[in-house]
């Protein structure tokens, strides 16, 4: 589904991604781990065509993201780390805009909006301006935006930061539900989250993959995930 081949990204002289290669199969939930600055966000920004790669290739269903960017962008739902939202819009205005721009047919927009709103628990804030929302609700609006067009691939950059434990569990369940039929890549610093949701883990450090496997495999090898993380990213 997603194939990343020899991906390299430089900012000036600064090497951020160093010959990164991995692939993600359909239906996999991939946890993307690594210290801050390891290159997780950069990788995601390149997969979503926000930034170009310095060299290397990303194939999504066999389509190159540099050549067929519009087609690959259609397959992806993306929640950036900063959860950027149009502050001056109301929740329903924003989500309706997302549904339209994602090319949903007119008669499908309202039913889909209702579906997404109940899935993400937004009915209480439906009419509120986005700049009045709490962190938790913002995160949910961001998630609603990402899943609106039922993408095959969901890319979530630290979707649970700043949420309270209840909200974290809710979002985690949501990711699991979605991940049954879709491909999900998400990055996180909460290691318990990884063992609770992911089929597979990739740990990167300084732009290189330093470890990968299922959470169970890593736990077997290193005792627990925290130990694995500590040792691999030292």
């Amino acid at each position: 589904m997603i194939e990343i081949k020899n991906l390299t990204k430089k900012f000036g002289q600064n090497l951020v991604l160093d010959n990164l290669s991995f692939s993600v199969a359909k239906g996999e939930i991939l946890g993307f781990l690594g210290p801050n600055g390891a290159g997780k966000t950069t990788t995601m920004k390149i997969i979503t065509s926000f930034w170009p790669a310095t060299s290397g290739q990303i194939l999504i269903d066999g389509l190159d993201t540099a050549v067929n960017s519009l087609a690959t962008r259609r397959k992806i739902g993306y929640l950036p780390e900063t959860v950027p939202l149009y502050e001056d819009m109301r929740v329903f205005e924003y989500l309706k805009f997302v549904a339209e721009i994602r090319g949903l047919e007119k008669f499908k927009i309202m039913p889909r909006l209702k579906e997404v709103v109940s899935l993400c628990g937004l009915s209480k804030v439906w009419r509120r301006p986005i700049d009045e929302l709490s962190k938790g609700f913002r995160q949910r609006v961001g998630l609603a935006q990402a899943i609106m067009h039922e993408p095959d691939i969901l890319i979530l950059d630290e979707p649970t930061t700043g949420l309270d434990p209840n909200q974290i569990v809710e979002i985690r369940d949501l990711i699991k539900t979605i991940g049954r039929e879709k491909t999900v890549i998400f990055s996180t610093h909460i290691l318990s989250e990884v063992s609770a949701t992911c089929n597979r883990v990739i740990i990167i450090n300084n732009g290189k993959i330093v470890g990968q496997g299922s959470p169970a495999e890593l736990e077997k090898q290193y005792g627990n995930l925290e130990q694995a993380f500590r040792e691999l990213t030292k």
Partner: peptide, 14 residues
């Protein structure tokens, strides 16, 4: 400034 450009330019629009 608000980062919405990242959302906007990763939509399937030219």
């Amino acid at each position: 400034k608000s980062g919405t450009i990242e959302f906007l330019l990763t939509l399937p629009v030219t």
